[in-house]
Simulated scan of single mutants.
Amino acid sequence: MKALFIGGTGTISTAISSALVRQGWELYLLNRGNNNDRVPEGAKVIKTDINDEAGVAALIKDLSFDVVADFIAFVPSQVERDIRLFSGKTKQYIFISSASAYQKPLSDYRITESTPLANPYWEYSRNKIACEELLISEYRKTGFPVTIVRPSHTYDDRSIPLGVHGDNGSWQVAKRMLENKPVIIHGDGTSLWTLTHNSDFAKGFTGLMGNIHAVGEAVNITSDESLTWNQIYEIIASALGVKLNAVHISSYYLAECSSYDFTGSLIGDKANTVIFDNSKLKRLVPGFNATVRFDQGIRALLDNVLSHPELQKDDPEFDRWCDNVIENYKNSIKKL
């Protein structure tokens, strides 16, 4: 079996790439070659920019694939390009959408693939919805063999999954914990959230690859474990060996007083309770089961981050922002 991944070295795709090579797939990764240290031994790299459509077309002219998956398509124009490039050259095209595309606010906290798609708070999610609509239309008109995958919050061993962090990643929040500084948790911390380790995501994804029953379908791939944000932050602090010093601040307050896109990432996503029904995935991939509990995954993640200084990216601007927001919030409470 032969697959082409556009990207293939990101948080989600690295675990899938490694799994496929172990399973004996002939794997091509089409990317700019910026993360060669994450390319599994045995994969073949086509070094180019996917946005150079004519150049890509020339490079793959004599190639065809059982599966093409695009991990870096975010807007309809990129999907339109993929349709032009891969029509007639693949038996299955997998588009990585997002569970943030589901309606906000939710009419039912239990999310299935039939939950409506509508997110007025986040342009990222609306663009994913538009990509899905374009692909399904193409499937209906021409038979373009699309499978849509909707991941939720998937993490690996390099970046700590959190609700509130700056543009330079999440290390600064862990650093605040280690320094016993107050850490912001959005809302009251009791909404439920789902975190999925990328090795578990890879099990579901590889099971959909080459699966004729998945063509024309949209499928959630998440863990069945649900945790409150309070539990998530407590687990992280415990794994760091420190006591959590939490300050709960309204998601709407954070969105209003910040240049960070908390309207999209919180109001349009993480501030909502989400519990996913993975029944469809389990029908399509018999035996699928997410096995990495968050407390296990976070310990391995933190061991890796703490032993690799290059993953500890300081964010002094976000640190100052946290201090200012917390101080202003506490002062406003005192005035009541």
Rank of each mutant, 00 (worst) to 15 (best):
4 L>T: 10
6 I>D: 05
6 I>L: 12
7 G>A: 08
13 S>M: 10
21 V>C: 04
24 G>V: 08
29 L>Q: 07
30 L>T: 02
35 N>H: 14
36 N>H: 07
37 D>M: 10
39 V>S: 04
41 E>D: 14
45 V>R: 06
46 I>T: 04
47 K>F: 01
49 D>Q: 01
58 A>S: 13
58 A>H: 06
60 I>R: 07
65 F>E: 09
65 F>K: 05
65 F>C: 08
69 A>N: 12
73 A>D: 01
73 A>Y: 02
75 V>A: 12
79 V>F: 08
80 E>C: 01
85 L>N: 08
85 L>A: 09
86 F>V: 00
100 S>Y: 11
108 D>C: 08
108 D>T: 11
109 Y>Q: 14
113 E>V: 07
114 S>A: 15
121 Y>M: 04
121 Y>R: 02
123 E>L: 14
126 R>W: 03
130 A>K: 14
133 E>R: 14
134 L>V: 09
135 L>E: 01
138 E>V: 00
140 R>Y: 11
140 R>M: 12
143 G>A: 10
148 I>A: 03
150 R>M: 09
150 R>C: 09
151 P>I: 07
156 D>A: 12
163 G>L: 00
167 D>I: 13
171 W>N: 02
172 Q>M: 13
173 V>K: 02
174 A>N: 03
174 A>T: 04
177 M>F: 02
181 K>L: 12
182 P>A: 04
183 V>D: 02
187 G>D: 15
188 D>P: 01
189 G>N: 09
193 W>G: 00
204 G>P: 02
205 F>Y: 09
209 M>W: 01
213 H>P: 00
215 V>G: 08
219 V>K: 05
220 N>Q: 11
220 N>E: 08
220 N>Y: 13
222 T>W: 04
226 S>N: 15
226 S>G: 09
228 T>R: 04
228 T>D: 09
230 N>V: 03
231 Q>E: 15
231 Q>N: 09
232 I>D: 00
234 E>S: 14
236 I>V: 14
241 G>P: 02
241 G>L: 01
255 A>E: 05
256 E>L: 12
257 C>S: 13
258 S>F: 09
259 S>D: 15
261 D>L: 07
262 F>C: 00
262 F>I: 00
265 S>D: 10
267 I>M: 14
273 T>Y: 09
276 F>Q: 07
277 D>E: 07
280 K>N: 09
285 V>G: 07
286 P>E: 10
287 G>A: 07
288 F>C: 05
291 T>P: 00
291 T>W: 01
292 V>M: 10
293 R>V: 03
296 Q>C: 12
297 G>I: 07
305 V>M: 09
306 L>G: 06
308 H>D: 13
313 K>M: 10
314 D>E: 15
323 D>L: 06
325 V>P: 02
325 V>N: 05
325 V>A: 08
327 E>R: 14
331 N>I: 12
332 S>K: 13
332 S>T: 12
334 K>M: 11
334 K>I: 11
